[in-house]
Design a protein around this nucleic acid. Sequence first.
DNA 1: CTTGGGACCTGGCTGC
DNA 2: TGCAGCCAGGTCCCAA
Length: 267
Amino acid sequence: MPELPEVETIRRELVPWVVGQRFVGVDVLDLTLLGAVSAEEFSRALLDRRVESLERRGKYLIFHLGGKALVMHFRMTGALLLNPEQNERYVRAVFHLSSGARLAFVDRRRLGVAWMEGADALSLKLGPEPLDDAFTAAVLMNSLKAHHIPIKAALLDQTVVAGIGNMYADEALFAAGIHPLRMADSLSDTEAQVLFESVRRVLLTAIGSKGASVDTYIRPSGQRGNAQSCFKVAHRRGEPCPTCGTIIERVPVRSRGTCFCPRCQQC
DNA sequence: CTTGGGACCTGGCTGC
DNA sequence: TGCAGCCAGGTCCCAA
């Protein structure tokens, strides 16, 4: 699933291909990608605009177009492919750039979304970027104190910290030695500090491996990411914990599958 | 206000 | 072997 490291990888790999280019055409094959907006209205707002910069906020990818912005979210199975094969499956829209390059929004489960809006006041309701300097252990601690919910659920709350999804929440909690069902407001200062550092380290490591291709995630080039090979608990139910050898368990937390080591992460 | 749970979506897997 | 039904999870929406 595209979480922060996957979207950041997509952003970095697309920058040299899109920044400075104009959108000269768009083929919308699946109207549900645009929500209630018609293809005509979407095209009118997008076409002939030049990409000034490509930004990531949380799991959102934002094409800044000078006064306007094209915003995308890939949800579960969305991806952007550069110059895809003619017979590529699950293509929902194709964007044509002035360079002649094509950018295909592919999305097997069709949950992804794309829309246009004003660039000055993006409507995204997101908490701090976990890799920004403004995000500190104290910021995390203060936010957790206001939430009487399982810490796993708090990490998935995009207003607490932006960009963490199911995989990296599990990895960060394992790295911090914290049980996923611990209440967020019960963490000590020390535990919050350790979790803060774990979140950043897990995300940075995954970006270094160009994201995790555990399901359908694929980079714009069509290559896979390799972050899944560094996972210690995520998607590893039934396997031995790399630290202590205890079998990794999987429990639902707020109806999200949650993998953890019952020995390294005690309540 | 907060928290919890269902809907959305489709391919792959489980079990009869 | 065939197929019904469940499961995956990010976000939105609604109910308690």
